[in-house]
């Protein structure tokens, strides 16, 4: 279970990095060359870069929040388990 907790965010971060690298390079090439006859104003590389930074920031914030929530969920589960396992108080 502990491995699952650490593998998911790492896997997602790696997937994002792969998608980012996979897209930024062709987009840069396309932005340099223009988009062909139908689009005469290429999307500026700086626009793509700033948008990518914004997306990466939101991505990281979301993951951090979820990681905090996963920790509190674990504590809640432990608390419930402890409550269930607590012996009944002896009668006075």
């Amino acid at each position: 279970m502990r491995n699952q907790v650490t593998i998911w965010p790492a896997g997602l971060a790696a997937a994002t990095a792969a998608v980012g690298c996979g897209l930024v390079f062709p987009v840069s090439a396309v932005a340099d060359a223009g988009y062909g006859p139908l689009i005469d104003q290429p999307l500026a590389q700086v626009d793509v870069a700033v948008a990518s930074i914004l997306v990466a920031t939101l991505f990281a914030l979301g993951l951090l929040g979820l990681a905090h929530m996963a920790r509190t969920s674990r504590l809640l589960e432990k608390g419930e388990a402890a409550d269930n396992a607590a012996p009944e108080e002896p009668p006075l």
């Binding site: 914004l54 991505f59 979301g62 993951l63 929040g65 979820l66």
Partner: peptide
């Protein structure tokens, strides 16, 4: 929080 992770990334891609 899950939407913060997925939604902007979906739209950018």
């Amino acid at each position: 929080l899950a939407n913060l992770v997925t939604n902007p990334l979906f739209n950018l891609v």
